[in-house]
Structures are given as structure tokens and as C-alpha cells.
């Protein structure tokens, strides 16, 4: 199911509508759905020295996060428990928009990264993975003799 990360936003709703229409008309929609808009939301960027990936995954225990680098593909996987009460409990769920369940997101990285110098930290619900670029790929100034 397609679930907007930031609900009740006009653009997200339009996006969902477009996505649903696309699915209805496409002859063979991909078995893996669409690549964009899963949980956690990603922000990917780079500096000349490193590639930085931020995953917005709040409320997780960092020990349960599975971050893997295989060749030049980075995968982030884990599970988030739902906050909803067990059905026997006397409680009413008024709004249920937060993601719950298993997740996995994959980012393919440029080929100049150094797989041996990766660091990851989890702060304020954001997982930050930093992968250094290889020394040999660094921009160098060539002196003219």
C-alpha cells in the first residue's frame, strides 16, 4: 500500500492520486512498487570527500537497525513496532498515520566510495551514514613546473 510520509498535505494527496491512476493504467506495474516515498524518508547528498545519507526514522532502537554496505549498494532495514493498542483493550484509534512494520530502503552509491571507511550514527531519530570517497578520487591540484 502506498502511504504518504507526511499526510493530509495537498501535494501528497495529489501524488497518491497520480500514483493510483498510474497503477491502474500501467500494463505491468513493477512487483516492487515504486521506489520513491517509502519509510524512512531519505536525503542523499555528497561533498568532494564523502557521500552522506540521512534516513528519517524516528523512535527506533539503533541496535535493531540493520545497515549494510554491499559493493556499492547501501541498504537500511529494520522494523518499527506500531503504537496501536491490542484489540482487547478498551481504546479508540482516532488517527493512525504513522508507519509501522518492517522496512527496507536501498541506495546505490557512486563508484568512487571507500567501503572501508563508513560511519553511522543515530541522533534525534535520524540515521546518518557517511561514506568517505577514495583518496585517489579526491580532486587534486596539479602544480605546474
Amino acid at each position: 500500500m502506498y502511504r504518504s510520509l507526511f499526510p493530509r498535505d495537498v501535494f501528497a494527496e495529489l501524488d497518491r492520486l497520480q500514483h493510483e491512476l498510474q497503477q491502474a493504467f500501467e500494463v505491468s506495474p513493477s512487483i516492487r512498487g515504486i521506489g520513491r516515498g517509502g519509510f524512512p524518508a531519505l536525503k542523499v547528498g555528497g561533498t568532494p570527500q564523502a557521500v552522506e545519507i540521512y534516513a528519517f526514522a524516528p523512535g527506533l532502537d539503533p541496535a535493531t537497525l540493520d545497515v549494510k554496505l554491499e559493493r556499492d549498494v547501501l541498504s537500511i532495514a529494520g522494523e518499527r513496532k506500531g503504537a496501536l493498542p491490542v484489540p482487547e483493550e478498551k481504546a479508540a484509534v482516532h488517527i493512525n498515520e504513522r508507519f509501522a512494520g518492517r522496512f527496507r530502503r536501498v541506495v546505490s552509491l557512486p563508484d568512487d566510495i571507500d567501503p572501508d571507511s563508513v560511519s553511522a550514527d543515530y541522533r534525534d531519530g535520524v540515521l546518518h551514514v557517511s561514506i568517505k570517497r577514495r583518496e585517489s578520487a579526491q580532486p587534486r591540484r596539479i602544480s605546474i613546473e
Binding site: 510520509l5 507526511f6 499526510p7 493530509r8 498535505d9 503504537a83 496501536l84 493498542p85 483493550e89 478498551k90 481504546a91 479508540a92 484509534v93 482516532h94 488517527i95 493512525n96 498515520e97 504513522r98 508507519f99
Partner: peptide, 12 residues
């Protein structure tokens, strides 16, 4: 600004 997703649960 972004609208954060929420869960709202009411009990007794």
C-alpha cells in the same frame, strides 16, 4: 512546513 504523521489513541 511539514505536517508530522500522528497516531491518536483514546482510552478511558
Amino acid at each position: 512546513l511539514l505536517l508530522p504523521p500522528v497516531d491518536v489513541i483514546e482510552n478511558g
